[in-house]
Design a protein around this nucleic acid. Structure first.
Lengths: 118, 118
DNA sequence: TTTGATACTTACTTTAGGGTTAGTACTTGC
DNA sequence: GCAAGTACTAACCCTAAAGTAAGTATCAAA
């Protein structure tokens, strides 16, 4: 992924904020450019790596696996691979991942309402 | 604020994603390191600039006004200033800003639940 | 006359997120 | 033999977000 510098004020503040504010903690898990899109697409059901890629055309492969790995590490997404050739890998939401649905729906609703007014 | 480069893929993707995904649109408004903290503190009622600063010790003054200005530009926060010396400025949530409360509460709840399990 | 309080502003540097390009291993179909 | 499809990996670069440090104007109190 990316090497992070654990001595910077930037890093320290990130930790402080996430520790003190549960909203920031949540945003850390579902934020970033592509995570909402990934989670949204997985809401309908499991998808293979290539299918996800096709669902989100502008994403690069690097960004896609990077975010999938983070989501997996955070326990929101589950990876299942069949050891066949060619490889067959599916990604799906875990229980924790599914528990985000109401929040994501709320955000989507708010976003649409705002867009229609602006 | 910061000059942005409107020709980069980065910028283009940002636009595409926000246009196509209302969740990303919402995250753009309330994301960033300090916005959740600011919105949270204003939920209780209007605060002066200096009071806000004291509520969020690690934030720098630059970051505080920068985010306040963005929130104001997005219509989530209202700035009222009395033209006195020394200056007296208060910030409060607008109707749109207050309409975020349920979402923020949902995120806080989810974050706390996750933290207690992790 | 220096200090403190108010609410900022400006110029500069650092860092983390995102993007580009190319390559991996294996097999099937042309 | 070469391309195409599978799911990645690795090296590198660029930029937006965040942080640092200092300065602005005005007045009152010590």
């Amino acid at each position: 992924m990316t090497a992070i510098k654990e001595t910077s004020t930037n890093f320290e503040n990130k930790r402080i904020v996430q520790f003190q504010c549960p909203v920031s903690f949540t945003l850390e898990k579902i934020g970033g450019r592509w995570k909402p899109l990934i989670l949204f697409n997985l809401q309908k059901g499991p998808l293979r790596y290539g299918e996800l890629k096709r669902c989100i055309p502008p994403i690069t492969e690097k960004m896609l696996i990077q975010h999938l790995k983070e989501l997996e590490a955070d326990g929101l997404v589950e990876r299942k691979s069949l050891p066949v050739v060619p490889p067959h890998v599916t990604y799906s939401l875990t229980t924790a991942g599914k528990s985000l649905n109401t929040i994501l729906d709320g955000m989507a609703e708010w976003g649409l309402a705002q867009q229609n007014q602006g």
